[in-house]
């Protein structure tokens, strides 16, 4: 078994559905950051069989509010002095703005350049969201994260 040392201080995103970890890295812009990051793909898990794990060293204030949309099963632990000081419970967001892009070609968002893409949760079990404008439904479970997630622009420095 591959062993990655525990971190002294930082964030551990654990129990990520195998295959989703890379998307989380990309979506949360962790992959382009200067942080020291350990990323485990397809790690063995007694709970899930296979899982992905992300460990980010020396970072405690990452914006994780949308992680619940990407993978509601993931767990987030905040580590200080090698100990878990806080566990963050993920929630599926009720409303998401500019993350899911409406794919309906008849939707007004296809022609109105500055309109925010707003989606409302309609079914939390299947993670189904409805477009604010055209009412088109997308399932985060079914339609695949790849197609739906619009990578957040990095704040200009």
């Amino acid at each position: 078994m591959l062993v990655v040392n525990s971190i002294e201080r930082g964030i551990v995103i654990d129990h990520i559905t195998a295959g989703v970890g890379a998307k989380i890295l990309s979506y949360l812009n962790i992959d382009t950051s200067n942080h020291t990051v350990a990323f485990l793909m397809n790690a063995e898990s007694t709970l899930l069989g296979r899982k992905d794990v992300i460990k980010i060293k020396d970072v405690l204030d990452l914006d994780l509010s949308e992680l619940g949309l990407l993978d509601p099963n993931a767990t987030v632990n905040i580590i200080e002095n090698h100990k878990v000081v806080r566990k963050i419970k993920l929630a599926i967001p009720e409303k998401v703005v500019d993350i899911i892009h409406c794919k309906n070609p008849r939707c007004v968002t296809s022609i109105e350049p500055n309109a925010p893409h707003i989606f409302h949760l309609v079914d939390s079990d299947r993670r189904v969201y409805r477009c604010e404008y055209c009412d088109d439904m997308v399932s985060m479970e079914k339609d695949g994260l790849n197609e739906l997630i619009h990578k957040k622009h990095q704040p200009s420095k």
Binding site: R106, V108, T109, S110, I111
Partner: peptide
């Protein structure tokens, strides 16, 4: 408007009441 949801964009932008008189097949 031919696009679905266009009057909602209009209603958000305008501070007067907006009535949808048909937005595509929506």
């Amino acid at each position: 408007h031919p696009k679905e949801g266009a009057p909602r964009i209009g209603a958000i932008a305008a501070d007067i009441p907006v009535i949808n008189a048909g937005d595509g097949g929506h």
